[in-house]
Design a protein around this nucleic acid. Structure first.
Length: 428
RNA sequence: GUGAGCGUAGCUCAGUCGGCAGAGCUCCGGAUUGUGAUUCCGGCGGUCGUGGGUUCGAUCCCCAUCGCUCACCCCA
């Protein structure tokens, strides 16, 4: 090794075979659960015009200001790797008339890119699963996506998740504006108690002061006015209707008046599924979303109400009850002794193909080796059976089937071997 | 962008107040010639992240640099 070895780009991870099985499992659950609610997959491109994200997410957000992977296309137009998928989904739906006089239930899953400093549970290329329900005023659709999310986590066997909900006030922004004024007023009066970050946010995005992780801020935050006190009648009714639907569906939640969202497009109810698990480090949100009734219009489409969420798949996989097995073990390992090292394997190849035709996964020994050696490899492969093909078997036109987890081995014809292995193979 | 910690074998890590570089696991071979989780023996594998400096001598001390990790900011 003379040249320095190539390395992956910082914050972009390889999914190695040992982990890939877990990803496949999660992806399978995504398809199953989404289909179960009548959501259909959409696959927007990974690259969009930068202007789309600026308009949708907000010019002044950190994502747009400093976290986007942007580059100039030939001809000079600025393009960006998508930092989230909602903007692309909405753009695609408007462009192709998916929302024209009708509702659309959409889901997506795939990589997103944000140039942040990596840390536990946060990477520069990460993956999200999300849903977008466009065209319903709610709150029944808000409840539906929360049910979908809750079922998704249940199906994955993830426990210890807490659902927190809040509202930012409806699309008109009346409640939000009133609350914002009250909050700014309060914070200015208590400016002496604010830390540096909070003072900066006071002007830039006052709602985010409520999000501060600084324990010293807890007192000021606790005394701050709450948005629930500033809601107009319509927003109040919407939020309480949503809570009623969740209660009726027996979905557990807590109202967190300090829950706010980072992206500009949110309006109305917002929510997060959070965990206290150590395995996410300083991160605690695995899924977050809400309502964004103004986004379609912002992107140049006809006005359309919308609600959705996004889940961080790396975070979900880190939480998912680790084992799903170390990865796909074959049903049987074919031991092939004699006939020279690897040279006389032609009958072994044919036998393996026959067994595969019968629906079994067969891993063949490669590279020769004594019986003992091959048996060792068979063990390591995780296969439930070893199928032995040596001089005796060849002479008899049979194979020996040996259960690796105990029991008698038997020398039988290939059809019987397939039957023996199939009868033991059981899937839930 | 800011701060802290860490870079020694494929993996997990010891180590020397500066004196020839270690262990476990993995891998390969063997313990009377057709049988795998144990046990025993042997072997492969490292310019101690990189580049300078101090020194008779640096993996160890100093400086720089690159990389990784964690945290802040922000967010899924």
């Amino acid at each position: 090794m003379n040249a320095a070895p190539m390395q992956a780009v910082r914050g972009m991870n390889d999914v190695l075979p040992a982990e890939a099985a877990r990803w496949q499992f999660v992806e399978g659950v995504i398809r199953e659960v989404a289909a179960g609610y009548g959501y259909r997959e959409i696959r927007p491109p990974l690259v969009e015009k930068s202007a789309l994200f600026c308009a949708a997410i907000g010019e002044a957000t950190d994502i747009v200001e400093k976290e986007m992977y942007s580059f100039a296309d030939r001809g000079g137009e600025s393009l960006s790797l998508r930092p989230e998928a909602t903007a692309g989904c909405m753009r695609a739906g408007i462009e192709h008339g998916l929302f024209h006089n009708r509702g659309a239930r959409l889901w997506y899953a795939g990589p997103m890119f944000r140039r942040e400093r990596p840390q536990k549970g946060r990477y520069r290329q990460f993956h999200q699963f999300g849903v977008e329900a466009v065209g319903w005023r709610g709150p029944d659709i808000d409840a539906e996506i929360l049910l979908l999310g809750a079922r998704f986590f249940r199906r994955l066997g993830i426990r210890g998740l807490r659902l927190e909900i809040n509202t930012l006030g409806g699309a008109g922004g009346e409640s939000r504006a009133r609350y914002r004024a009250a909050l700014v007023d309060y914070l200015q009066k208590n400016q002496a108690d604010l830390d540096e970050d909070s003072r900066r946010r006071l002007h830039k995005n006052p709602l985010r002061v409520l999000d501060s992780k600084n324990p010293a801020m807890a007192g000021v935050i606790a005394g701050a006015p709450q948005i629930t006190d500033c809601l107009n009648a319509a927003d109040e009714e919407f939020f309480s209707a949503l809570r009623g639907l969740l209660d009726a569906a027996a979905v557990a939640y807590t109202v967190n008046p300090r829950l706010v969202r980072g992206l500009d497009y949110y309006t109305g109810p917002v929510f997060e599924f959070v965990t206290d698990s150590e395995s996410l480090g300083a991160q605690n949100a695995v899924c977050a979303g809400g309502r964004y009734d103004g986004l379609a219009e912002t992107l140049g489409g006809r006005p359309a109400p919308a609600a959705g969420f996004a889940c961080g798949l790396e975070r979900i996989i880190a939480l998912a009850a680790a084992e799903g097995g170390g990865g796909a073990a074959p049903d049987a390992y074919l031991i092939d002794v004699g006939e020279g090292d690897g040279g006389g394997a032609s009958d072994a190849l044919a036998i393996a193909e026959t067994m595969r035709d019968a629906g079994l996964a067969i891993q063949c020994n490669r590279g020769g080796g004594a019986m003992k050696k091959q048996m060792k490899r068979a063990h390591r492969s995780g296969a439930a059976f070893a199928v032995i093909l040596a001089a005796d078997e060849r002479a008899a036109g049979k194979v020996t089937v040996k259960p690796m987890h105990g029991g008698e081995q038997r020398t039988v014809g290939i059809k019987d071997a397939v039957q023996i292995i199939k009868s033991e193979k059981q899937w839930p």
